[in-house]
Write a protein that binds this DNA or RNA. Structure first.
Length: 938
DNA sequence: TTTTCTTCCTAC
DNA sequence: TTAGGTAGGAAGAAAA
């Protein structure tokens, strides 16, 4: 449903674009292309397998739906018997969490009370689901041992800490008697700062439950006295690590890796008596007995995961957004596909009231909405998907279903995870980061299943003008939704079985498109790659920020050297200075301009100069130098961060090499996604050190990085100026941006610019410490430099004969806060100027468009499309309001911004028609244009 | 009317 | 209980 996305809070993006598609009349003529596509699935399947019983559109008793005879595809393949004494169990783990539970006989760990148990969910090669309880791993953290501490003091320390933590508890509803399980002395070194590799005694404090870590840490920090030792505050280490991450780091498990339970090392739970999950295999294992396979060679494969995509329709009242306590759910379409296969093997719609059949899909009709809901939940549990997708399911479909089921008292509905007794409930989550702004989300627990809401993925990974399913599908698939206006959904439902069929086709397509997009964008594979590279669970990638990925890698690298990470108190400091952007010489250049880039500049600086927590010489320990911060060289100690970066970048290099060899377009996309993920990960290491409200900020590192960057830019400039002088036959001009140097070499052709550019890059690189490298990247010819961070040019990189594209940076054409008309207009003008070399043509075009605009000859949809406007307009007048409002007020927005207070009417804050006129003229008239091109604009 | 503050979005 | 960074252009709103 298109309008459902209004429901999701302030970040919600706009509604459908004004689409002038086929009218309702066209629709009845012939089956849509989507229907043909659906029927093809059926034909293809009939050729390969015997015809299966299809439930058709008869009303079937609910219980019978789930019989294997009627719907053989719904269940997973039968699980072969598993004998722990002779069989190993191998599965790909896709989700990991923990719970507090009673100990299981024969498993390691505390025997008394509730203990934390790690739970992994996964799938075997043969497609059987696994739930694996991992026992014996307890949470812990460190403090530095006070001087004079020996093993004799351990007892006192433990007893006293246990006592104060117990006393600190307001209520003890779990009846905990032991909070501190163990205290051990261990040799460790503080990761922060270089101290001559001096190992010290640390106390490793093991607690009974993860939630006891925070109070223990607090009490120790505040001041703690035990035995004969005086009162003292203790700095804690690694007390702020998520328990799941702690486990994964310690057991060398990374997200989505393959797990092997060797024979005779695990126990199988008999399904009926002991099992708590819906999985086909449920096993217990000690945490030291499981084998985690690094994602290499054969262990890079992906199990045949089941991906379910669904969409719901509800019958809202006219002009009112559907409310779960009032408006019924009338259809739920579902498609299920195995990861790696091309087509969904289950295509089904649950409908309220009868519905005519649709070839290629199964229709299940219900007379009672309660039955529909309950059966769909049962369907989901039977299909047992590993991944659930859809469009905005997180903030609309799932919440709506849960609320509706609650309103109708469908008691068995909200058990959607893989743990039988675990009810799925909805929580609100406010998530705020500088990167993504404020975001209000709902979260629904669904143990063992990964929710992969395509809208959330797109919001995270792609900058798009519009995030409606229709726009996104068109953008990536050149395909659109079935044409049904939401305003007629209720009418279709109240019609006959033919009108409900039409609705069902629409609903099916909305379930199908997310699957197609997921496939096209390689989301599952790319996210798995990211989980494997950074070591975090798959779900973290969608629910958490960037920091956790660096923390995970940092801890893994640190553990190898017995380094421990301190807990730092976030304190908002002053911003540090970043890179300088030199004022460019604005203008139009009709000669080739070579661009040389420092590739992965910040990561290379960190590697070249061994910048790390572990190599930082702190000023208290050493002489204070006025010049800045000091780090030891890699010959003394190699930093963790440089190591992490080397791993990431060498993995990226491998991916790029494979990419070059690969011819299959899909695999190319995977590899491209991987190399991009690795690049992003490498770049975020720098950001992590500069994140002042973060797990381990270190401004010495981040400002040294930017400092080196500035210095390098200056050095580069000097180098080029010394060699590429006019007297040497060049006429060097530089526009030095953050990482790149643009050089006007005084050569006439693109080929020469490329050759000289490459040579210059190599020569300059030789003056820097590896792996810092300046690379020739591209030639712009011609080149229009409007301002800092705003330019356009024809882009040559491979061939010197033809340009690859017209590259526009920072100009209206690439900004999403402009309406399409402006983007198109500027784009065409730039084409005239750069490609046709016809500035007068550009002016003529602009005049023409403006005249069209004045005479109302422009399609309204080109004018009013920005995110803010559609949202705001919607809030005022409901669906499609933007079109109606625009028509009513005849306001033509070329750029839209709205006051955060919604008191102002939007029409009054809409810029007048004059704005676009002025804007274009100002743009064309600006000195950089007219001066160089002799433009005359009246 | 001019200047400053705020917001948004992009480049890197 | 959670969050990568800074620089900078452009334009609207608020303040002067």
């Amino acid at each position: 449903m298109e309008f459902k996305r209004r429901n999701g809070g302030p970040l919600k993006v706009g509604a459908t674009q004004a689409k002038r598609g086929k009218t309702n009349d066209d629709w009845e003529d012939s089956p849509s292309r989507f229907e043909e596509e659906l029927s093809m699935f059926d034909e293809a399947e009939m050729e390969t397998e015997e015809i299966e019983g299809q439930a058709g559109h008869d009303v079937i008793p609910v219980g019978d739906l789930f019989s294997a005879d009627l719907n053989p595809r719904w269940r997973r393949p039968p699980a072969p018997p598993l004998n722990p004494s002779s069989d190993k169990l191998v599965f790909q783990q896709i989700d990991l969490d923990y719970y507090l539970g009673a100990t299981v006989a024969g498993m390691p760990g505390q025997v008394q009370g509730n203990v934390p148990i790690i739970r992994m969910f996964g799938v075997t090669d043969s497609g059987n689901s696994v739930c694996c309880h991992v026992h014996g791993f307890a949470p812990y953290f460190y403090v530095q041992a006070p001087s004079g501490f020996t093993s004799d003091s351990l007892g006192d320390f433990k007893r006293e800490l246990n006592s104060v933590v117990l006393k600190d508890m307001r209520s003890n509803k779990d009846n905990i008697s032991v909070t501190v399980l163990a205290v051990d002395i261990t040799r460790k070194e503080n990761m922060y700062g270089y101290h001559g590799k001096r190992m010290l005694d640390f106390l490793r404090i093991t607690m009974a439950m993860p939630r006891l870590i925070a109070p223990a840490k607090r009490l120790l920090e505040q001041g703690f006295k035990f035995g004969a030792f005086p009162m003292q505050g203790y700095q804690s280490y690694e007390a702020n690590i998520d328990f799941e991450i702690r486990f994964m780091v310690d057991s060398d498990v990374v997200g989505c890796c393959w797990i092997e339970l060797p024979k005779s090392k695990y126990r199988v739970r008999e399904e009926k008596s002991m099992g708590v999950s819906l999985c086909q295999y449920e096993v217990d294992v000690g945490w030291t007995d499981l084998i985690s396979h690094p994602a290499e060679d054969e262990w890079q494969r992906i199990a045949p995961l089941r991906v379910l995509s669904f969409d719901i329709e509800c019958a809202g009242r006219k002009g009112i957004f559907p409310e779960a306590d009032k408006d019924p759910v009338i259809q739920i379409a579902s498609m299920v596909q195995r990861q790696g296969e091309k087509e969904p093997f289950i295509r089904t719609v649950f409908t309220l009231q009868s519905c005519a059949s649709i070839v290629g899909s199964q229709i299940l009709c219900f007379t009672q909405e309660t039955q529909l809901l309950q059966s769909w939940a049962e369907f989901l549990r039977t299909v047992d998907p590993d991944i659930i997708t859809g469009y905005n399911i997180q903030n609309f479909d799932f919440p709506y279903l849960l609320n509706r089921a609650a309103a109708l008292k469908v008691k068995l509905f909200p058990y959607l995870g893989r743990v039988r007794v675990m009810k799925s409930v909805m929580r609100d989550l406010n998530f705020q980061s500088k990167q993504m702004g404020r975001r209000e989300n709902k979260i629904i627990n669904m143990e063992g299943r990964v929710q992969f809401d395509l809208l959330q993925i797109l919001l995270r990974d792609y900058k798009l003008r519009s995030y409606t399913l229709n726009a996104v599908s068109f953008h990536f698939l050149q395909e659109q939704k079935e044409d049904v206006q939401h305003s007629i959904i209720t009418d279709l439902q109240n019609g006959n079985e033919q009108t409900r069929r039409r609705l069902a086709v629409y609903c099916l397509k909305d379930a199908y498109l997310p699957l197609r997009l997921l496939q096209k964008l390689m989301c599952v594979i790319n996210y798995m790659e990211m989980a494997r590279v950074t070591g975090v669970p798959l779900t973290y990638l969608l629910s958490r920020g960037q920091q956790i990925k660096v923390v995970s890698q940092l801890l893994r690298q640190a553990m190898k050297q017995d380094l421990v990470m301190p807990v730092v108190r976030p304190e908002g400091g002053e911003d540090y200075t970043g890179a300088t952007v030199i004022e460019p010489e604005k203008g139009y250049y009709s000669v080739p301009i070579a661009t040389l880039d420092f590739s992965s500049l910040y990561p290379s600086i960190m590697m070249a100069h061994n910048l790390c927590y572990t190599t930082l010489l702190q000023k208290e320990d050493f002489i204070k130098t006025p010049t800045g911060d000091m780090f030891v060289k890699s010959s003394v100690r190699k930093g963790l961060l440089p190591e992490i970066l080397e791993n990431l970048l060498s993995a990226r290099k491998r991916a790029k090499t494979e990419l070059k060899k690969e011819t299959d377009p899909f695999k190319r996309q995977v590899l491209d996604g991987r190399q991009l993920a690795l690049k992003i990960s490498a770049n975020s290491v720098y950001g992590f050190t500069g994140a002042q409200v973060g797990k381990l900020p270190c401004l010495e590192i981040s400002q040294s990085v930017t400092g080196f960057g500035r210095q390098m830019i200056e050095q580069t400039k000097q180098l080029v100026e010394s060699k590429y002088t006019i007297s040497n036959g060049y006429q060097a001009f530089f526009y030095i941006r953050k990482y790149s140097v643009m050089v006007k070499l005084g050569v006439a052709t693109v080929r020469e610019a490329m050759d000289v550019g490459k040579e210059a890059a190599e020569w300059i690189s030789s003056h820097f410490t590896p792996p810092i490298k300046l690379e020739f990247e591209k030639v712009y010819y011609p080149y229009l430099l409007i301002n800092k961070k705003r330019y356009a040019g024809l882009y040559f990189s491979g061939s010197a004969d033809t340009h690859e594209k017209m590259d526009c940076k920072g100009i209206e054409t690439v900004r999403r806060d402009n309406c399409p008309l402006v983007a198109n207009l500027i784009n065409t003008c730039l084409q005239r100027i750069l490609i046709d070399r016809d500035p007068q043509g550009a002016v003529a075009h602009a005049k023409e468009v403006i005249s069209d605009l004045l005479c109302n000859r422009i399609d309204i949809s080109q004018l009013v499309i920005t995110k803010e406007l559609t949202r705001t307009a919607q809030e005022y007048a409901g669906k499609q309001a933007h079109v109606e409002l625009a028509e009513r007020t005849q306001s033509l927005c070329w750029r839209t911004r709205f006051p955060s207070t919604h008191n102002t009417t939007w029409s009054s804050s809409c810029p007048s028609l004059l704005s676009i006129n002025m804007h274009v003229i100002v743009f064309l008239k600006s000195s950089q244009f007219s001066n160089f091109m002799g433009l005359a604009v009246d």
